[in-house]
Design a protein around this nucleic acid. Structure first.
Length: 480
RNA sequence: CGGGGCGUGGCGCAGUCUGGUAGCGCACAGCGUUUGGGACGCUGGGGUCGUGGGUUCAAAUCCCUCCGCCCCGACCA
C-alpha cells in the first residue's frame, strides 16, 4: 500500500520522484533562489556517504585533494573554443563588487578546467612533475533552464579531478582507470546501481575534450542517467593555458590533461534506481542509518524493560553497524514503521515485551516492505545476522536493478524498432551514422546515443539508420 | 525561451463564479487515555489571503500591473 502523499510510480514517475525527495526529507526547494535546493540533513548525509566512498578510491589511486577559487576571470573561459561555446549559455557572471563595476568580470565556475589550467601551467616545469594528480570537492553553478532536485540544479556539489600527463597514453590510461576503478566500482558496489561503461559520441562529449567516457545507469522508467564522466582532454587545454614541461631530452613538450567528475546527481540516481511506492530505499553500504530499533511497550514498566533489552542487544554494534534507537515516546510504533520505511532505512528491528520474554526480536527488511519482510529471530547471534542481512540486501538491490536493466534493454535492427524500444528502455544497435543523423534521431524520438559501450561485439552488422556495415554498437535511450 | 498550473496559518487545500471582514484537514502546544503496521478525546496558539494600484460603503473574491514558484518541452552532469 503506497504511503499517503506519494504518487505511485506507475501513475506519474516524475511526480513520484519529487514526492520521495520531499517526503523522505532529502531536500527542500530553495524557493528564494531559483533552481537551487537545500540539502536537508538526510539528503546531505547520503552525499557525505557518497563522498566517503569516492574520496577513498580517489586517494587510493594516487590523487590528492586541493581547492581552487569559485570565481574565474571571464577571459579564461574564452580560451578554449569548444569550451566557451559549450558553457557560455549557462554561466553566471559577477560584474560588480563593493559598489563598483569590476575591471574584468568573473564567472562563477561551471567547471574548473580553465582556472586549474592556469595554475597547472605555473606548476608544471619538468617531466618529473608529472603526472600531476589533483582532485577538488566543490560547488559549481550552471544556469539551467529547467531544474529537478539533485538531477539538475543551478548549483550542485561534485568532485572534479584534474590531471596532467606526459603522454597521450598516460592520459588515456588515467581517464579509463578513473572510469573503471573509481566510478564504476563505487556506483556498482556501494550504490548497487549497475552501469554501462562507454565512450560518448562526438555530439555528447564534453566541450573541449578529445574523448569523453561515461557510466550510464538505467532508471526505473527506462530512461538513462549519466552517472559519471571521465574526459581525456588531449592537448586542448594544455594548448590554451600553456601547460608545458621539459622532457628527458631537454625539449619542451605540450602536456596532456584529463578531467573527471561525479555530482550530487548520484543521489537522484540512487533514488530512481531502488526506491518504491513506499518511499526511499537506500542501499546498506551507503545508508547513514543501517538499522533502526523501534521499542514497543504499553506502560512505563514495559518501557524500561524493553529499553534495557535494547541496550543489551545493541551493546556490541558500535563500529559495526550504523544504527539508531527510536525511543520517541509521543509516536506509535506503527507510525515509526512507516516513517522509517519512507526514509529508506535498510533494516528495522522491533523489540517489545514478547521479545524480552522470548529473547527474540522482529526484523523487517526494507527491500521487502510491509509485514511480508518481517521475521522473528533470536537475540543470540543477532549482530552477525544483521551484518549478513545488510550484505544480502545490498546484493538484492543490485541484482534487482541489473535484472530490470536487462529486461528493458533490447537489440534493435530497424529504425522502427529503435523508436519503440526507446519508449521503454535501452536500444542497443549497430551504428555508422553521423552527428547529423544522431540529431535527426533525437528530434524524432527524443533519444540520444548514451554511449558506445566499451564492450563491443566481435561480429559486424548493419547500422540501424544508414544500413552501412559496421562493427560498432551503441546504446540509444532517452536521458535525464 | 515556448506551453500549462499555482500563490490563502508550518504543510495540503476550500472559499473567488454570485463582494459583507477567513475556514477545513494535517502538523504544533497542554492534559488524559493509548502504543507489535500511520491512536483517540478535550482544550489552545497561529493567517499583512504573493506585490502594487484601481473600483466599491465594503475586496481573498471584481479590474489592471508586477513578482515568484512548480510542472511539461527545447539545452545540459
Amino acid at each position: 500500500m503506497p504511503k499517503d502523499g506519494i504518487t505511485p510510480r506507475a501513475h506519474d514517475y516524475s511526480q513520484w520522484y519529487l514526492d520521495i525527495v520531499q517526503q523522505a526529507d532529502l531536500a527542500d526547494y530553495a524557493e528564494v533562489v531559483k533552481g537551487c535546493i537545500v540539502f536537508k540533513p538526510t539528503g546531505y548525509a547520503i552525499w557525505e556517504a557518497i563522498q566517503r566512498g569516492l574520496d577513498e578510491r580517489i586517494k587510493a589511486t594516487g590523487h590528492v585533494n586541493a581547492y581552487f577559487p569559485l570565481l574565474i576571470p571571464k577571459s579564461f573561459l574564452m580560451k578554449e573554443a569548444e569550451h566557451v561555446e559549450g558553457f557560455a549559455p549557462e554561466v553566471a557572471e559577477v560584474t560588480r563588487a563593493s559598489g563598483e563595476e569590476l575591471a574584468e568580470p568573473y564567472v562563477i565556475r561551471p567547471t574548473s578546467e580553465t582556472i586549474i589550467g592556469y595554475f597547472y601551467s605555473k606548476w608544471v616545469r619538468s617531466y618529473r612533475d608529472l603526472p600531476l594528480l589533483i582532485n577538488q570537492w566543490a560547488n559549481v553553478m550552471r544556469w539551467e533552464m529547467r531544474t529537478r532536485p539533485f538531477l539538475r540544479t543551478a548549483e550542485f556539489l561534485w568532485q572534479e579531478g584534474h590531471t596532467v600527463h606526459a603522454s597521450e597514453e598516460d592520459a588515456e590510461r588515467e581517464t579509463l582507470m578513473i572510469l573503471h576503478d573509481v566510478y564504476a566500482d563505487f556506483v556498482e558496489k556501494d550504490m548497487a546501481v549497475p552501469v554501462i561503461k562507454g565512450l560518448k559520441s562526438e555530439k555528447e562529449k564534453f566541450p573541449g575534450a578529445l574523448r569523453s567516457y561515461c557510466i550510464e545507469a538505467m532508471m526505473q522508467d527506462g530512461r538513462a542517467l549519466q552517472a559519471g564522466t571521465s574526459h581525456n582532454l588531449g592537448q586542448n587545454f594544455a594548448r590554451a593555458f600553456d601547460i608545458t614541461y621539459t622532457d628527458q631530452n631537454n625539449t619542451i613538450q605540450l602536456a596532456w590533461t584529463t578531467s573527471w567528475g561525479v555530482s550530487t546527481r548520484l543521489i537522484g540516481a540512487l533514488i530512481m534506481s531502488h526506491s518504491d511506492d513506499e518511499g526511499l530505499v537506500v542501499p546498506p553500504r551507503l545508508a547513514p542509518t543501517q538499522v533502526v530499533v523501534v521499542p514497543i511497550y504499553k506502560n512505563d514498566t514495559e518501557r524500561s524493560a524493553v529499553l534495557a533489552a535494547i541496550q543489551q542487544i545493541t551493546a556490541d554494534w558500535k563500529g559495526r553497524l550504523r544504527f539508531k534507537i527510536d525511543d520517541r515516546d509521543n509516536l506509535t510504533p506503527g507510525f515509526k514503521f512507516n516513517e522509517w520505511e519512507l526514509k529508506g532505512v535498510p533494516i528495522r528491528l522491533e523489540v517489545g515485551p514478547k521479545d524480552v520474554a522470548n529473547r527474540s526480536v522482529a526484523i523487517a527488511r526494507r527491500d521487502q516492505p510491509g509485514r511480508e519482510g518481517k521475521v522473528i529471530a533470536p537475540q543470540a547471534g543477532l549482530t552477525e545476522r544483521l551484518t549478513a542481512l545488510l550484505d544480502a540486501i545490498q546484493q538484492t538491490l543490485y541484482d534487482r536493478a541489473l535484472a530490470f536493466r536487462n529486461a528493458r534493454t533490447a537489440d534493435v535492427t530497424t529504425y522502427d524498432d529503435l523508436k519503440q524500444q526507446v519508449e521503454r528502455g535501452f536500444a542497443r544497435c549497430y551504428w555508422a551514422g553521423s552527428t547529423e543523423d544522431e540529431k535527426r534521431i533525437q528530434d524524432e524520438t527524443r533519444a540520444t546515443i548514451r554511449c558506445i559501450p566499451l564492450e563491443q561485439p566481435q561480429q559486424s552488422g548493419r547500422c540501424v539508420y544508414t544500413g552501412k556495415e559496421t562493427t560498432r554498437q551503441v546504446i540509444f535511450a532517452r536521458a535525464y
